[in-house]
Simulated scan of single mutants.
Amino acid sequence: MIIFAVSRQFRSPPLRSAALPLLTPSGRIEIFSEEINSFGYDDCAGHPTWFEPVEWLRADLSDRFPLHLISNQPASRLHSQYDNGGHSLSSKIRGREPVTINPSDAASRGIESGVIVRIYNDRGSCLAGAVLSDDVMPGVVQLSTGAWWDPVQPGTSGTLDRHSNPNVLTADRPCSRLSQGPSAHSALVDIERYDPPVPDVLAYSPPSLEQ
């Protein structure tokens, strides 16, 4: 209600921006920003502009990794907090975070609902439990963030994460030089069945202490 009242007053003469300025250099709504444009960033213009993502389904890399990973916030916990709690654990498949796959993508890879799969790209790989659903379009897979990192070989770059943490798959690359926001939704991957013996999840086990 307060926002609505302020915006209505901002648009009503004779107040406008003189009495209720916005937090912009001009105090008005700005579609083009002289200040941002003056920075000369090649990845952030002074107005809304389409920049081709480094990783998306029309990138050359999609020939090798044809699935676009969406790593959303989880519904079963707050980020990674209480991933070891009952509510979070009840959502997992054989102790792993569920990854949602379109049935057509799953069929071409011999994946059925409930099996353990390996999600991978050049940065790393992790295990997850397959969920088949038309809620994601073909070419897209969804794996929530927040599963506690559990590397098979700690300290080894690219080691398998046995516990479904998508951070091993996403790039440490900002959205732009201006925002420095995460670009976690722009990652290409592929998925395959994981038929070897599934390693135990050790993320919740406390370290051994010297006596």
Results as ranks from 00 to 15, higher is better:
Asp161His: 02
Gly95Phe: 04
Ile3Tyr: 12
Ser125His: 07
Ile111Leu: 13
Ala59His: 09
Ser7Met: 15
Ser71Thr: 11
Ala45Val: 04
Gln211Val: 08
Lys92Asn: 11
Asp172Val: 11
Pro13Gln: 09
Leu67Ser: 03
Ser205Ile: 09
Leu178Glu: 03
Thr49Ser: 12
Gln142Cys: 15
Arg162Leu: 01
Asp105Gln: 13
Pro53Tyr: 07
Ser113Trp: 08
Asn84Phe: 12
Ala5Asn: 12
Pro199Thr: 01
Asp200Trp: 01
Ser80Trp: 14
Pro13Cys: 08
Leu23Ser: 09
Ile2Thr: 13
His68Trp: 12
Tyr41Asp: 11
Gly46Pro: 08
Ile116Asn: 03
Ser7Lys: 11
Asp122Leu: 08
Ile101Gly: 02
Gly95Trp: 00
Gly139Ser: 14
Gly85Glu: 11
Ala5Trp: 07
Phe10Asp: 03
Leu67Met: 07
Glu192Leu: 02
Ser113Ile: 09
Val168Lys: 04
Ser104Glu: 15
Pro74Arg: 06
Asp122Thr: 08
Gly124Arg: 00
Leu202Pro: 00
Ser33Gln: 08
Asn72Tyr: 08
Asp135Lys: 13
Pro154Leu: 07
Pro196Cys: 01
Asp150Tyr: 01
Val168Thr: 10
Ala147Gln: 05
Leu69Met: 09
Ala5Asp: 11
Pro166Asp: 01
Ser38Met: 10
Ala19Arg: 09
Arg58Trp: 09
Arg109Phe: 13
Ser80Gly: 10
Phe10Gly: 05
Ile70Trp: 04
Pro197Ala: 13
Leu23Met: 06
Ile191His: 00
Gln180Glu: 07
Asp190Pro: 03
Asp172Gln: 13
Val117Gln: 06
Pro174Thr: 03
Ala19Phe: 07
Pro66Ser: 14
Arg16Thr: 11
Pro206His: 03
Arg96Phe: 07
Gly155Leu: 02
Ser157Gly: 03
Asn167Trp: 02
Trp56Asp: 15
Glu97Phe: 05
Gly181Arg: 10
Gly129Ser: 05
Leu78Pro: 02
Ser164His: 02
Tyr41Leu: 15
Leu57Gly: 05
Ser133Lys: 08
Asp200Ile: 06
Pro154Met: 09
Tyr204Thr: 04
Met1Trp: 10
